[in-house]
Every structure is written in C-alpha cells, then in structure tokens.
Design a protein around this nucleic acid. Structure first.
Length: 601
RNA sequence: GCCCCCGUAGCUCAAUGGAUAGAGCACCAGCCUUCUAAGCUGUAGGUUACAGGUUCGAGCCCUGUCGGGGGCGCCA
C-alpha cells in the first residue's frame, strides 16, 4: 500500500548490486505468506539464473545462489525507517514492517479517505463498458442479469481505479423476435394489457412462446395446418416489411409494446442501482450502419458480391494473409441490402470512438459471440482505428438450467424478477431467527439488500468464462462464501462501533498486536492493489474473492480479539479504529460489487 | 476440417511462472450468561485429465492425445 518503504529497500538493493558488479533482474514484490507478521518479499532466482546463463556465475545451483544473494543483501541492508527486520530465506528477501507505525498509518489512511479509500489516481483514459443488452418484447431473465451485474461491477471498478467510465446499454428493440411478439399481440390480444410493469413484461414473453409454437414447422402437420402456418408466416413478414418502411400503425404498435419492455428494464436497473449513461437502441443504429458498408467497399476492405446475388463480405483471413482459417470471412451486409449484427456493431464502434472519444471499449457479451468480436475488432483495425487494440470482449458463460439451455422462444427461462422476489422471501423467512434488531420499517429493504447481495455474489464470485447451472438454493445461499457472509462482517463491525456512537479517539498502536489484528491490517492494506488488478484485468471476480477474504479475516478477528471488553483504553481505541477501517474497506469492496453494506441484518 | 473456452478435493470453484496448491458446500468433532452463531475453531479429503517439452522453478507457458462446451459468409 505504501510504496515509499519498498522503494527505499529497492534503492538499497540496486546500490548494492552496482557496487558488487551484479546484474540485477527486475525486482518483483509480493506479499509474504502470512505467518503472524507482515511485509513484502522479493526473490533473487531470476538474478541468479541470469548470472548462470551469462556464464559469470559461481557454478552453484540457482536456488543456492539466490539464497546467497538474499543473505548478502540482508547483511548489507542495515536499519531502515519503518522496517522491523529483514530475513533471507529460500532465495527470498522478506522485509517486515515495523508493526505499530505501519498499522497506524494504514488505519489512519483508511479513516481519512473514507469511501474514497482505494481509489486510483486519474488514468487520463476514457472507458466505455457496454453491458445489459436485453431484447425488448421478451422478459429480463437471469442471463441478462449476468451481463448486467458483471458489467456494472466492472464499470464501478474501472471508475474507481481512475478511468473515466461511460456505461452503455444496447437493447435489441427490433428484429424478427420483436416482430413475432407484435404480430401475435396484434392478432390475438389486441387491446389487452395486464396491470403492473413486470406482469406486462412477462406477458409478452408468454405471447412470444405461443407465437413461436404457432409458427414452427411440425413434421406431422396436416395440409390445413401447413396452410395456416404459412399464412401466419406471411402476416409476420408483412408486418416486418411495414415496420421497415415506417408504416404509422405498425410503428405505433411497436412503440407501445417496446415501452412496456423498457419500463420493466428500467425498473430492474433501478433495483440494481445501475445508472446507464447512454442507450444505443438497435433500431436506431440499423439505418446508419448501412452507410459504413459503402465506405468499407471503397477502402477495399470489403468485397461486394451483390452483382452476383451475394452479400457484402470481408475476407479477413485473406486480407491478413493467414494460411490457416482464423477470422474467416465475415458477412457485413445481406444480399438484400439489410444490415446484420456485425454491421451494426461496426457502426456503433465508430460512434463510440468518434462521438464519445473512448480510448477503451469493453463489451460484456456472452462467449458465443467471441468470433463475432474477433472479426469486428480486426475489421476496425483494418479500417484504421487504433482504439481497436484496446477493444476487449469480456465474454461470459451461459447460465443454463439443470434440464438444459434457457430459451425465450420456448418460454423456458428463469426470470430475474422471480429470483429476486424469491430471494427477498427467503431472507424474510429467516430474519426472525437470525437477525439482530431491525426496525420494522427497514425489514423489507434490508431483506432486499441481503437477497440481492447473495444473488450478485453467486454470479460475481465465479470466473466469467465458466457456465453456471442455475440452482436457486445455491444462488440464494446465505452461509459460507456468500454475499450475506460479507455483509454480516460489515454488520458486526458496525455493532461494535455503535457502542461508542462512532467516536474514534486517535491511537498509536503501540500495543503488542495479536496475529488476527496484524492479518486484518495486512488485508485492508491490500485493497487498493486489488482495485487496480481487478480493473486492469477486467475481472470483477478478483474483487469478489478479496471481499470474502477480508470478511473472513474480520470474522476471525471478531471472534478472537476483544474490542470493547479491552481494559486498556489505548488498546481499545486502537482496535476501535481498526474495526472502523475494516468496516469502511468492506463497504468499499461491496460497493464495487454492486452489493449493499447494511448496518444491521 | 479449422478456431475459441474449459478439465484442480465427493460437489461448486480459487490460485501476477515462485515458498507447504487454497476456500465453500457436503461429512465428522467442538464453541453462544462474553462486541450479532447469516459466525468461529478443528479433523478428513489432491498423481492439478494424460504424455512429452521449455525453465533454476510449471496447475499456469509450448506441442500432442483424450474428455466436455461453444463457434465457423447472409440469426443475434
């Protein structure tokens, strides 16, 4: 956390190596495996190996030579301000911090920074995170939730790490699926409309599933059924055509039903505390996207095969001179002149670069689109956008059901709303036996925080490229490595602090600290580095792991180390400040995971 | 045929090329007159799919094999 001490040591090592004609490899600092004290560690394996390769070594095995070097440095080190002692062990140089001074510094820094503890310095780069791409006219299911929570957490991380961050959503509000719902609604349900935002959204999903069944070809259908199906199909096609040419009636129907879905989506985003900066609607990028195709043809990036009845394509592998198939050939415009997913994404990327001036563009989209994005990024590169190098597809695995993939068309989905409601219900059912004193007026809201926290954590704590087989009991578990476990650490910290009404007199940390105290301080001090890592690697999971680790350390501390019962006032004050610092760090970590940190539960 | 992801404890998952591969769940044994037991402590559980290679050092990098998932010019 504090690099100045580390820097002092590093300078000393460099001076020593220069004086002794030793070619020092780059020093990498890591945390020492915890053993009751804390500090940082670096090794000399690389330096020893370099020596051996250069032929100027001593002929000794690398580990032995590394240990020798570490010992020499240790002898050479002398005393350094803020360092209690140094040890050379197994080729590593372990530098231990002077406990009291370091502890005080960490705790004071956290308390002074508050909600800003861990915030990175401004990076001078603008990041756009595109996530939450639900289709309208269906309902928001648990798969949409995964991109939303993943993207929101990532956006919070990049923002906190110091990147200027723009949150973007790209709802699919037009396409065959949308038209299918409109057709069925218009034909069978015109004028009807259930009350309630979510009821309406879910009703559309039901209509979609019904419509799909009507339009699906069956092997054993009778001639009458075939005629019927083909007539339906023709009606749907006609409706799409009318939408395309801007028929007022169809457009009005579209606007109305689209609004139902968007209302539901906004309600869910509110529930999740997601504040989008920009919405790119598929319907709005459709028309402009066609214009870029001509430009790509003129630049000789795309090949127009329309004269022979074909589409417009980009032969990526051929253009790159690749012998093996890798990016293949991408179609960027249908032979009938209509746009495709890729057409729109290329156009959208240009808007992001030129209108929003983004330096990095991150797409939180499921892993099945990985070829699509590889193609898109390559084409952008050929097109001459340097930002293409900093485009990143954060792919994630599907959420499937035990019986197989979810399918909106078959109506076989787990809706986010169902899960969220169930989560709150389950929390309320255990609140009476497990909770502390929760004011009646807050019970519902805290139950929501805990339920949604459990759900969010169950998604964020799994590596994004893993598939998740959705299990309600697992997703909403409150025990062990879960959101509520972390929230509970925050609550316990708060319950101690309540007893002094938040009064935190200064403290020196001169007492002989127990290992649980030291370990807690060590974990807290790692938070800023974890923020950097999670943001740089685009991995919310790193923060999820850390949050658990920190809470786990706090729970152990809480159990083993008395705070209010401490007789010595000086020690009590120090521990109170440590508890406050832990509470703050837990809250900051949870916030980056889009999880609330309640004061009671 | 080609490309991408994955394979770690019974199950679900971790582990910037670095020290003794770690958690949770499940199982077993303890801990509430003491700051919230949604908790803590302990036991048990491993040939990191397999075979080579690179490296002082490989779960991690490279090659191959096997197994699972996904994708591959007009769906999104």
């Amino acid at each position: 956390m504090f690099n100045d001490i580390q820097q002092t040591i590093e300078d000393k090592i460099k001076a020593w190596s220069a004086a002794n004609d030793i070619t020092l490899a780059t020093l990498k600092w890591t945390a020492i495996p915890f053993s009751g004290e804390w500090g940082v560690s670096t090794s000399f394996f690389q330096t020893a190996a370099d020596e051996a390769r250069a032929g100027k070594g001593t002929g000794k095995p690398v580990p032995q030579r590394a240990q020798e070097l570490a010992e020499q440095v240790k002898v050479q080190m002398g005393s350094v301000e803020g360092i209690s002692h140094v040890e050379a062990i197994k080729g590593y140089l372990n530098v231990y911090f002077a406990t009291g001074a370091y502890a005080r510094r960490v705790v004071d820094t956290v308390l002074a920074s508050g909600t800003d503890f861990g915030r990175g310095s401004a990076k001078g780069e603008r990041v756009m995170v595109e996530y939450c791409q639900p289709n309208t006219h269906h309902s928001f299911h648990i798969g949409h939730y995964r991109t939303t929570i993943l993207g929101e957490s990532l956006a919070r991380l990049t923002e906190f790490a110091g990147f200027e961050t723009i949150r973007a959503s790209y709802p699919g509000d037009i396409g065959l699926g949308v038209i299918t719902v409109m057709w069925a609604y218009d034909k069978f349900y015109k004028g009807q409309e259930p009350a309630g935002v979510h009821e309406r959204g879910q009703w559309l999903l039901k209509i979609y599933a019904e419509a799909t069944a009507l339009l699906e070809k069956h092997d054993d259908e009778t001639p009458e059924q075939t005629t019927q199906r083909e007539a339906y199909e023709a009606e749907r096609r006609e409706m799409y055509r009318k939408w395309d040419v801007g028929d007022p009636e169809v457009r009005a129907l579209w606007q109305e039903t689209r609004e139902w879905s968007l209302a539901e989506m906004h309600d869910i985003l509110d529930t999740l505390d997601v504040k989008m900066d920009v919405f790119f609607f598929e319907s709005e990028v459709d028309e402009p996207s066609k214009a870029i195709v001509q430009e790509l043809i003129e630049r000789d990036i795309a090949t127009d095969e329309r004269s022979i009845g074909g589409p417009v394509i980009v032969k990526i592998d051929e253009k790159l001179g690749l012998a093996k198939e890798k990016y293949r050939t991408a179609v960027i415009l249908r032979s009938d002149g209509t746009s495709l997913y890729l057409t729109k994404d290329l156009a959208l990327a240009r808007v992001k670069f030129e209108q929003y001036h983004v330096d990095r563009s991150i797409y939180v989209v499921d892993f099945r689109q990985s070829l699509h994005f590889q193609q898109a990024f390559k084409i952008l590169e050929m097109w001459g956008f340097p930002q293409a190098a900093k485009c990143y597809h954060l792919s994630y695995g599907y959420i499937t059901l035990p019986e197989g993939a979810m399918s909106s068309r078959r109506g076989r989905v787990i809706l986010f709303k169902e899960v969220a409601d169930e989560a709150v219900k389950r929390v309320l059912s255990v609140e009476s036996e497990k909770s502390g004193d929760i004011p009646e007026s807050e019970r519902e809201s805290i139950a929501r925080q805990i339920g949604l926290g459990a759900l969010a954590y169950s998604i964020l704590s799994v590596d994004n490229n893993k598939d998740i087989v959705f299990d309600m009991n697992e997703a909403l578990s409150f025990d062990g490595r879960t959101g509520p476990y972390i929230q509970n650490a925050h609550v316990r910290a708060n319950s101690i602090l309540k007893k002094v009404n938040g009064q935190l007199p200064p403290a020196e940390f001169r007492h002989n600290m127990e290992k649980h105290e030291i370990e807690l301080i060590e974990k807290i001090s790692r938070f800023p580095a974890v923020v950097e890592q999670a943001a740089n690697e685009y991995r919310p999971m790193v923060m999820a792991m850390y949050a658990y680790d920190l809470a786990n350390t706090f729970h152990s501390f809480y159990h083993a180390v008395p705070v209010m019962q401490t007789e010595d006032g000086e020690v009590r004050n120090a521990r109170l400040r440590l508890v406050a610092a832990a509470k703050q760090t837990i809250a900051n970590a949870l916030r980056l995971l889009d999880i609330h940190a309640p004061d009671v539960m």
